[in-house]
Design a protein around this nucleic acid. Structure first.
Length: 119
DNA sequence: AGCGTGACGAGTA
DNA sequence: ATACTCGCCACGC
């Protein structure tokens, strides 16, 4: 895919690639990305996203809790509403509260219909 | 070398 | 649901 940004470490490149192939309306957790890559851990993925995530749809790589990125809730929420990402039903949600992702529905396993997962 | 910290995650209280 | 602990791995001091 896009192999621009030659300044990035190989691992960071792989992480960003995965982030790019998460389809709209779906999300992947940091741990899932790490597992999908078969290397590193959630914190490493998190680090990469923190440093270079601005170049990819970072809102599609989320925490397992389903909480939105602190400091980017508004931005992320806008994207989710735009992409139709499943959010947890907010019944008694106060003005203080920001909706969380419905991980059960939004979580993407990395397998695309009619496409091999990985070599 | 040790120690703290973080866009993490799962378990326990 | 919140708070805390521990395991995890890379970085910086």
């Amino acid at each position: 895919m896009s192999e621009d940004l030659p300044d990035l470490p190989a691992y960071a490149e792989r992480v960003l690639d995965v982030a790019e192939l998460v389809p709209p309306g779906r999300v992947m957790t940091y741990g899932d990305v790490a597992e999908w890559l078969g290397e590193g851990g959630p914190r490493q993925v998190g680090r990469v996203m923190a440093l270079y995530g601005g170049a990819v749809p970072w809102w599609r790589v989320v925490r397992a809790d389903g909480i939105l990125l602190p400091g980017h809730e508004v931005e992320a929420l806008g994207r989710y509403r735009e992409e139709g990402t499943p959010l947890r039903a907010a019944a008694r949600q106060a003005d203080d509260h920001v909706p969380r992702l419905d991980m059960r529905r939004a979580r993407w396993d990395g397998s695309v219909h009619g496409q091999d997962a990985h070599t």
